[in-house]
Design a protein around this nucleic acid. Structure first.
Lengths: 337, 337
DNA sequence: ATCATATATGTAACCGGTTACATAAAGGAG
DNA sequence: CTCCTTTATGTAACCGGTTACATATATGAT
């Protein structure tokens, strides 16, 4: 069943059927009704694939995230969905699992699927292959918007948060609470947020005359397990830190997992500040101080920006950076009783 | 740039290029190399849309969920992604926000996009329009797998949990802990899990000789706000319940939100058991007793089943129901000290 | 040497839409 | 009444792949 069949049924040409469906061009009302009746009777649904091929646009937007199971990204996606609903665009979802190789595969697929646009949280800001591909996308007319993570030397548009300033303020809260021995469980040094949050940490210590201590700056990967192990390692140091700065929500959870197992309580035995809220902990008033932002809104903004670029047929990025506001919410875990 | 251009470059026909790309049919090794070289040189990526149109299959699977921001569904999707990675299939994501109307729109789009298969958590088990559409999909050769929520009179394959038995055991735990005044904040009566969990609740009370009390059985919608309000209402009853059964994770959060605001502690001032775990609460050893299951696995199973049906070109459902195991994990909130 | 089979490649129709272009009738201005 | 513009519709090429079918050569068995 295709438009030619419908055309035959309605006694018109396929062009007219197409015009009726798309409400384009001139069609006499009487003809329109005949066509609509034929469509209705046949239960005809036009083939979007054929349409895509013809107009050279898939009307689909690729969303590439590193981990959907992370509530930050599921909120981001939720916001994107909201911004896209009502538009013509569908969302094609890819989960890279923080693996560069998978990211490359996803980009490959995105390219072959002729996606109309791309929203991506790249695994690494240094990945030349990903960067080149994204630049290539834009030069082919496929706009790209970075989500939460920038790419080095790319000038790509994106929606971010001011990671350094936010981390700075978070660490400063620990210092104000009297801490001098402050550790950080870093994010991947290859990711922009990981790096910038670390930068903010260092700047805060420097500005308050606290020497950086190598043992207190341990690497992480934005995942629970690693953070758990690093917390253990930190607390087993001969001179352990009295406070920990966690670089993202998963890191916070890893820290909390270890502390909980050891029956250590935040705000009593040890202090901490985490980056990104954890909704259910807020609900039970668990006193974890975090740097917060509206993830849903961030996703919404990213999608809105992309759709805006699409509607203006503007594929080239111009280094537009939207920053969503953040807030340092102190709930007590930055202190020690 | 299309295969005909590549064909020209390599001095062969488009059919040969197609054969090389798909590794189908006979191609002399020497020719193959020439073609591959031409593809490489041109940076050619075949157009999946054209391919889809030609082979009449989009190689995309539609995933329709009611709320991605709910960690249960984001875990489900994560599992689906894992099961699909390595296959040829992409995921097209739809979020209905628990709204039937949006679900219908999504199905409409899914149909026009000629998706290869569908994984859906329908908003309501009674929605005739959705049901008919799904049946129609299957008769058109598009297999469907239901995820976590069944549809009435449909015989559709699906991956579920034994909601009644699980709820029964959860409520039984409250009874064993000595409770007689047990309330339930129900799920939507139009959703299978909502109904079956309520069924389990009633059966447990009945089997233990406890009369059902109308005021204790309040409606909910699987969302935080409503659960919050209902908790307030329940506790303001002249004769308030001593225990609450929450029908899903969002409901639990709504209950906890109110209790926390009132400085009431579970396992001390009031008891409760919730359906579905809340990961971060587990990490901090928050003593909320819940009925648990592996959501990621459930998503994985659903996707695996769908891909299996697709590979066997078996679009008709045969009422196959996979049940993922559940576990009642008692952490103390079912008691009162 | 003959014929069957396996290997290799090209031609062209087809998937189901869109749309440039052609054609024609109707409406309105002068 | 003529000419121009607006309205209405059809024809056919095109988007970029796939594949049935035709054709041709190589291989090998008898």
């Amino acid at each position: 069943m295709n438009i030619r069949d419908i055309a035959k049924k309605a006694g018109v040409s396929s062009a007219t059927v197409s015009r009726v469906i798309n409400e384009s061009g001139y069609v006499k009302e009487e003809t329109r009704q005949k066509v609509l009746a034929a469509i209705e009777e046949a239960g005809f649904v036009p083939n979007a694939i054929a349409r895509s091929l013809s107009i050279r646009d898939s009307s689909s937007i690729g969303v590439i995230v590193p981990d959907i199971a992370n509530e930050f990204f599921s909120s981001i996606i939720s916001g994107m969905g909201e911004a896209a609903s009502g538009s013509q665009y569908s969302i094609v979802l890819f989960d890279t699992g923080e693996m560069q190789e998978r990211e490359h595969q996803c980009l490959q697929i995105a390219e072959s699927q002729r996606l109309s646009g791309l929203l991506i949280t790249p695994v690494s800001e240094l990945d030349m292959e990903t960067r080149d591909k994204l630049i290539q996308f834009e030069s082919k007319g496929i706009p790209v918007v970075l989500v939460d993570r920038n790419m080095k030397n790319s000038n790509m548009d994106g929606v971010f948060v001011e990671n350094d300033a936010a981390a700075y303020q978070g660490v400063e809260a620990l210092i104000r609470a009297g801490h001098r021995k402050i550790a950080i469980i870093k994010g991947p040094s290859t990711s922009m947020p990981g790096k910038d949050r670390f930068k903010g940490y260092k700047a805060a210590l420097r500005d308050h005359g606290i020497a950086l201590k190598k043992e207190y700056m341990v690497s992480g990967d934005f995942k629970i397990i690693k953070a758990y192990e690093q917390t253990k390692a930190l607390l087993e140091l001969p001179d352990p830190p009295t406070a920990i700065f966690a670089s993202n929500n998963q890191t916070s959870l890893g820290v909390l997992k270890y502390l909980t197992e050891q029956k250590l309580k935040i705000g009593r035995d040890i202090s901490m500040v985490g980056f990104d809220q954890i909704e259910s902990l807020k609900i039970i008033d668990y006193r974890l101080s975090t740097i917060e932002r509206d993830a849903k809104r961030q996703g919404y903004e990213a999608m809105a920006l992309l759709i805006n670029k699409l509607s203006r047929k503007e594929s080239k990025s111009s280094g537009r950076k939207i920053f969503v506001p953040f807030q340092v919410v102190l709930r007590g875990s930055e202190t020690i009783k």
